[in-house]
Design a protein around this nucleic acid. Structure first.
Lengths: 192, 192
DNA sequence: CAAAAACGAGGACATTTGTCACCGTTTTCA
DNA sequence: TGAAAACGGTGACAAATGTCCTCGTTTTTG
């Protein structure tokens, strides 16, 4: 599991072998079964998470039990509850596995410790956060400026790999519409 | 104008006098008139921006001329086009002033240079970015899980200072609905 | 100061979307 | 493997929202 992460680190940023070794040494490997929960809403998020294999989902639950999907994290994506991790406060989101998955975990103490021995990790980490910010902003612009159909098409073409692996009702939730609405849109598209 | 920023720096993070001086010395002060454009969509965003006085707006324009408001930046808020600044690529957003404003600007070379002389600035900067990420995520959750009326109430109570200073049609744009829809919601509320 | 622009509201109507109920198929898992 | 759950779709109807229009007031600006 670590081997895959090592090649990721070397291709993404050009960390040295020694730096890679350091980063790996403070990671915790964890296998997740489908539906297994990694972080529960209300708990403090203890980890930064890197997905080696599989697919994670981040969502929020309303009192009536309905779920709202904030995002998906497939292989080679980092994820966490940023606010909970950063400030060590109760999490707003639940993170669970949509497929059997393999993840690497770093707790805050260990990860912050790495900043000392691997200074460049700080830049790398900031890059990851900033990328998540771009993604969020694009999604916001998309929701306030585009029709549901346009947003659906955008999702399919931007994340074809994810689209192929998640049920449609989760895509609907991600887009902020009902299952039925998404179904109608798809139906209208096949006719064309 | 710098005096205000200095007190901000000392209260927010506890930078030393010397660090504050360093940070200020590479800033560029700029006064903006209402409606003046600081960054134009398509140009490369050269600056990190700190608002000392006034109110800035970030928005995106569609080919038909319609504007979609990504956010507002009042006093003591940092703003920029993150992707454009970070990667020095054409900006997706326009930033202009809704009121006569005073801002401080740092270009990427200068700001990155500060990381060397003021190492703690890196943490501080990452904090700002992470806060923006929280904010974006809350907004996304809000749009996919709440009614327009709830989102309107949330906006008013979360940003009462901003709400009092921007026209309603911009709030509507920010929420992703038409002016008329917002008008109806407000009308329904006064009756209660 | 006066003309022009911006602003907020409101009505009428079409369109989109949500909700509810139901159905058949596929997948899951004990 | 067999029952149960999950999944995707559909129709009917109500509710929410967009669009287009007009109107009167306020604000801006030359």
């Amino acid at each position: 599991m670590l081997a895959e992460f090592e090649t990721y680190l070397k291709t993404q940023a050009n960390f040295t072998d020694d730096e890679v070794k350091q980063i790996c040494s403070s990671a915790e490997c964890k296998k997740l079964r489908r539906k297994e929960v990694l972080l529960r809403e209300g708990d403090v998020c203890r980890y930064k998470i890197f997905v080696c294999k599989g697919l994670l989902r981040t969502y929020s639950t309303k009192p009536d039990g309905s779920e709202y999907i904030m995002g998906f994290a497939p292989e080679h994506r980092w994820t966490t509850d940023p606010e909970s991790y950063h400030k060590q406060v109760p999490a707003a989101f639940t993170i669970d596995a949509l497929e059997d998955s393999e993840v690497l975990l770093w707790n805050k103490v260990n990860f912050d410790g790495l900043y000392v021995s691997v200074p460049r990790l700080k830049e790398f980490s900031e890059n990851i956060i900033t990328q998540n910010l771009y993604r969020s902003q694009r999604r916001i612009l998309s929701t306030i400026s585009s029709s549901v159909e346009e947003r659906y098409d955008e999702f399919v073409s931007t994340y074809p790999d994810i689209f192929a692996r998640v049920p449609l009702h989760m895509v609907a939730s991600y887009l902020g519409v009902s299952r039925e609405t998404l179904s109608r849109i798809r139906h209208a598209q096949v006719k064309r």
